[in-house]
Amino acid sequence: EETYEVDGEEQLKKVEKMLRDRNLDVEVEIHNGKFVIRAK
């Protein structure tokens, strides 16, 4: 499992696309105004 923490939606979209391109399962949560992306 990998976890990424990003600020802002633009970064979120980039990271999310990169992970989905690797066929990973992606979950996004918001913690303290930051996006936390978990990939399995």
Rank of each mutant, 00 (worst) to 15 (best):
V15L: 14
K17S: 09
E16Y: 15
V6R: 02
G8Y: 08
D25P: 03
M18D: 05
M18P: 03
V28Q: 00
F35A: 03
E2P: 07
H31Q: 11
E29C: 08
A39I: 15
V36H: 06
K13H: 11
N32T: 02
H31P: 00
T3F: 14
E29Y: 14
K40D: 04
K17D: 09
T3I: 15
V6Y: 03
E1Q: 11
N23C: 13
R38A: 04
V36L: 12
G33A: 01
K40W: 14
V15D: 01
L19H: 02
E16I: 15
D25S: 11
L24I: 09
K17N: 07
V28W: 07
E1V: 14
K13A: 12
G8M: 05
E27T: 15
E9A: 08
K40F: 12
M18L: 11
V15S: 01
I30Y: 14
V28P: 00
T3P: 03
N23F: 12
E1G: 11
L24Y: 13
E5Y: 15
V26Y: 15
H31E: 08
F35S: 01
I37T: 01
E16P: 00
R22K: 10
E16G: 02
K13T: 06
R38E: 03
A39C: 14
I37M: 00
M18C: 15
D7Y: 14
E2N: 07
N32D: 12
R38S: 06
Q11M: 13
E16N: 03
V28F: 05
K17F: 03
I30D: 07
E27D: 09
E10H: 06
F35E: 02
I37Q: 01
G33D: 06
I37L: 05
A39N: 03
K34P: 00
R38T: 11
L12W: 07
L24F: 14
G8S: 15
E10V: 08
K14F: 11
V15Y: 11
E5G: 02
R20S: 10
R20C: 13
K17M: 10
E16A: 13
L24Q: 07
K34A: 04
T3G: 05
Y4R: 02
D21Y: 04
E5M: 10
F35L: 07
K17L: 07
E29W: 14
K34L: 06
T3L: 13
R20L: 12
K13Q: 11
